[in-house]
């Protein structure tokens, strides 16, 4: 079991504009935590800062006891964090299989069951018959599953999912919800960003509501249910 992800007082800029104003959050081992908030409130920037893709101006990010601040993305990935960005960024002229194989990275802890092509195809059966197809010719849902599968091939202990169900058809959202719950049951820690409260309540243990680059609510989703004024103020209901 790995240690927690801890983000303290994270400030980040997008170009010249200040986007994050001191974000604090924690993901405990095995937990599934959601960043809730409308478009443009800083969810993606938070994810990208954790991954080292957006430099943090101030603050501290640690994972599993290791200080990640200032490390390049490949070092952060190597400390056990997998990333599925909202833009998906499937390599379009590589086949589905190549997209997965390129991401292979051995697990950090010995004794963990490593992810293999077979395990990915078992979790996302839809990908198996497509394995020779180019990544650029997949549907949105297939691309999203491939994005998650690609992140898993690196055997992360923490998975960052940026809006995994955004723009997908309701049936596909249902399918992916089940798959993410299945994934959660493997014991992996998950931090995901979401605008959609119903998806979040189905999978997350805890949520942070972000608005204007600050955390406005921190607690269990049941507690959020009892505070309709917060939902109305910060979320699209």
């Amino acid at each position: 079991m790995s240690g927690p992800l801890e983000v303290e007082n994270l400030h980040a800029f997008y170009g010249t504009s200040h986007v994050l104003f001191g974000i604090n959050l924690t993901v405990h081992p095995g937990e599934c935590v959601c960043l809730l908030g409308r478009n443009g409130v800083g969810k993606t920037t938070t994810m990208r800062s954790i991954m080292g893709l957006v430099p943090a101006r101030d603050g501290r990010i640690t994972y599993d006891g290791r200080n990640l601040s200032g490390l390049p993305p490949h070092e952060i990935a190597r400390s056990g964090i997998g990333f599925a960005p909202d833009a998906r960024l499937i390599f379009p002229d590589l086949s589905v299989r190549d997209n997965l194989e390129i991401a292979i990275k051995p697990p950090l802890a010995s004794g963990t069951l490593p992810w293999t092509l077979e395990r990915i195809y078992k979790l996302f059966p839809i990908l198996k018959p497509l394995e020779a197809n180019a990544g650029g010719y997949l549907s949105g849902g297939e691309q999203q599953m491939l994005t998650v599968g690609r992140a898993l091939m690196g055997n992360p202990t923490l998975l960052l999912l940026d809006e995994p169900v955004e723009g997908l058809a309701p049936v596909v959202v249902q399918e992916l919800t089940q798959q993410i719950i299945e994934l959660k049951n493997t014991g992996i820690s998950i931090l995901f960003a979401e605008q959609n409260l119903s998806f979040a309540t189905q999978v997350a243990d805890r949520a942070y509501i972000i608005e204007g680059g600050r955390v406005r609510f921190d607690g269990r989703l049941e507690d959020l249910e009892r505070q309709p004024e917060i939902k109305a103020k910060y979320l699209m209901i």
Binding site: L53, H74, F91, P92, D93, L94, D98, I102, K105, R150
Partner: peptide, 25 residues
């Protein structure tokens, strides 16, 4: 080759290749 595929992937997105833990430098 695996390295060749990484090069093609990097043409599309260096950030994503790097986020997979591949030593992009």
């Amino acid at each position: 080759t695996r390295t060749g595929k990484i090069v093609r992937a990097a043409v599309y997105s260096r950030d994503m290749v790097s986020a997979l833990g591949i030593r992009i430098p």
